[in-house]
Amino acid sequence: MVINKPARAGTLESSDIYIMVQPNQGQGIEIQLDSIVLKQFGKQIQNVMRQTLKDLEIEDIKIIANDRGALDYTIRARLETAINRAN
């Protein structure tokens, strides 16, 4: 899948994540992550995002995410939705 335009999903409520995606043609995967649990779960959140991108076969994308302690399935759902909206 290709990211054609900027799009977003999610909220800044506790236990949610706000994700913006942007086209990043030919520049690979770029993730800007801010999280209230960055120290404890930052790697895990990145892993979930990268796995989601792999499953959707996305190679070029810029993700800007503000995490408020979302669980893995929420992160995955918000990212998939943002990507669908960017299509």
């Binding site: 649990v37 120290k39 404890q40 779960f41 930052g42 790697k43 895990q44 669980l71």
Partner: peptide
């Protein structure tokens, strides 16, 4: 099981 195990700071 729900949250995963947090990394130590």
């Amino acid at each position: 099981g729900i949250t995963g195990k947090p990394m130590e700071i």
